[in-house]
């Protein structure tokens, strides 16, 4: 906003100051967070059932932190999500650039084929992966993170197309004259990528990696069919656990995870701002 505009009570583009938009988003965030707040509150409930409040306790936190398999599955799931996000972002990025930059025969087919992992019912893909890893005699590893390799591979397969779709949506808006200008000035492909394209798609990269991360963290069916005795994961543990109803232990564990995320993002943002100040 320029100075002149800020004198006017609300500039034409200050959508964040429109009243109904504000109220709408407040309601949106309340609804979005209601279940989360509910589970945080009930993680302190002194009852195995999440139904009536029976007094405050932290015993489920103690239990969750003492539950060896729960912690192991937590670490496994986070590792899977982290590694598969990194790899699928890289693969997705290269595929998106390729599809955006080049014309080639069979391009439409490649394009459509990238949609199939999104369309396919999860269980069908899970079974496909199960048969595949069985018939190629995928080796059994007991070493971290190789013990997670099957799950990671399957997760990359269904999540990198998401990255492609999001990055391409963003690239669709890239002003091609920028690239021509860069080339006219003698920049190589790499320089153009590094200084023109990359900064432009950076938000899409971040956004899509956030999405793939939660996709991976949430996936149950495909993970179930690709896991074995050496790689228990959180969703598999949780799906089996809730057979007896959701125990506050799970709520406690989820709360801890949310707190870790909040604290680490706050720290990262602080750190980034600090760096910027230094500059």
């Amino acid at each position: 906003m320029t100075k002149k505009q800020s004198i006017i009570r609300r500039g034409p583009l200050e959508y964040s100051k429109i009243k109904w938009l504000k109220y709408f988003s407040v309601v949106f965030f309340i609804v979005l967070y209601a279940p989360i707040i509910n589970l945080i509150i009930f993680s302190f409930n002194d009852s195995r059932l999440n139904i009536v409040w029976r007094g405050f306790t932290i015993k489920y936190y103690v239990k969750a932190l003492q539950n060896e398999t729960l912690i192991l599955s937590f670490i496994n799931s986070l590792s899977i999500a982290f590694i598969s996000t990194m790899i699928s972002t890289l693969i997705g990025l290269s595929a998106a650039i390729c599809l955006w930059k080049f014309n080639f025969r069979l391009k439409t087919y490649y394009d459509l084929s990238l949609l199939v992992p999104i369309i396919i019912p999860e269980i069908c893909m899970g079974v496909a992966m199960l048969i595949f890893f069985n018939s190629v005699h995928w080796p059994v590893f007991t070493i971290w993170p190789l013990n997670l390799s099957e799950i990671i591979i399957a997760h990359i397969s269904f999540s990198f197309p998401f990255v492609v779709i999001i990055i391409r949506a963003r690239l669709g808006n890239l002003n091609k004259s920028l690239i021509e200008a860069s080339k006219d000035l003698g920049a190589t492909e790499w320089i153009t990528f590094r200084y023109v394209i990359f900064p432009f798609i950076k938000p899409a990269l971040i956004a899509s990696s956030l999405l793939t991360f939660i996709l991976s963290l949430d996936d149950f069916i495909i993970t179930f069919f690709t896991s074995g005795p050496n790689n228990i994961t959180l969703p598999v543990k949780i799906y089996s656990m809730v057979r007896f109803g959701v125990s506050p232990e799970i709520n406690a564990a989820s709360t801890i995870l949310i707190m870790i995320v909040i604290i680490s993002t706050v720290l990262i943002i602080k750190f980034l701002n600090y760096e910027k100040d230094l500059k």
Binding site: P35, L39, D218, P235, V246, I250, L257, V261
Partner: peptide, 8 residues
């Protein structure tokens, strides 16, 4: 919110 498992 999506860091919590879907089922939970």
């Amino acid at each position: 919110p999506f860091w919590t498992n879907l089922l939970i």
